[in-house]
Design a protein around this nucleic acid. Structure first.
Lengths: 137, 137
DNA sequence: AGTAAAATCAATAATAGTTATTATTATATA
DNA sequence: TATATAATAATAACTATTATTGATTTTACT
């Protein structure tokens, strides 16, 4: 028999974690997921959440987002899109905008290495916080 | 006297930290700075390094870089420029390229909040690692 | 269905990066 | 130079993440 290929066993926990991420657009952290998923899996451990998040990221099923926030955030939407982080409330949201993947070309121009892609995080003040600063009275 | 304004006392340690960052283009972490600067200030503590890095960042004298790496990196070059992170060796370098600040305009188009700026991290394989993969023999 | 290998699990310990606390020292200004 | 304030060193505490362990479950193959 062939032991060189590694089979991946399915687990209810991993399914639940993956399902949570793709059905929530909140870009949750490992801890967010852990706390919510405990309602359905009271015995699940934080280690299991981390292990499966790492695995799902390696498989390319989800994406990991790193920005100023101390913790990593995860995104179930793996199609190319950009993010906005509010400097005031810290929320992270998807940003609908035209495709700007051509910046990779621009970056390659005077660079001897190979550009594979980019991560771009816009920051500023989100609509909700803007409202609080200048409320329409 | 007026106690509402906060005066900032100078310290040799902070000067040394700031000087280290602006004279090194390596985008060091707090720990990098700590370890190097100990040669001149054997008694300096890591807490002092962190506190001053936070302060200098708040003052806008240096910039904090957050990307996949676990630790924060710091940059003494506060003029707008972009960064490249090598997926192979993890190095971070400045990227000379045309100005692409207009992406902020593009992002603002369908967004009700206020875009103040962006951080963009290009990734791929750096020239040195590319050489190692396909050496010219 | 039976079985062995592999992957899973929860629990916990360990590590890394960072922040907070406190008593002491240095700095700026009167 | 006396005084008030800020910065320091040392250390403790905290948060996010990873590694370890030993038991259980799942899978591939018979």
């Amino acid at each position: 028999m062939n032991h060189t290929t590694r089979t991946l066993n399915r687990s209810k926990q991993r399914d639940a974690i993956f399902n949570y991420i793709i059905t929530h657009k909140t870009h949750p952290t490992a801890d967010d997921i852990y706390n919510d998923i405990r309602k359905d899996f009271p015995n699940i451990s934080l280690g299991t959440v981390y292990r499966n998040l790492t695995l799902l990221t390696e498989l390319g099923s989800i994406k990991k987002l790193s920005y100023g926030d101390a913790a990593e955030h995860f995104d179930g939407d793996i199609t190319p899109h950009n993010h906005f982080i509010c400097n005031t409330c810290g929320s992270i949201t998807d940003l609908q905008m035209e495709n700007i993947d051509f910046v990779d070309e621009a970056a390659s121009r005077n660079f001897d290495g190979k550009i594979a892609g980019h991560n771009i995080y816009f920051y500023g003040t989100c609509p909700s916080c803007l409202q609080n600063i200048h409320p329409e009275h």
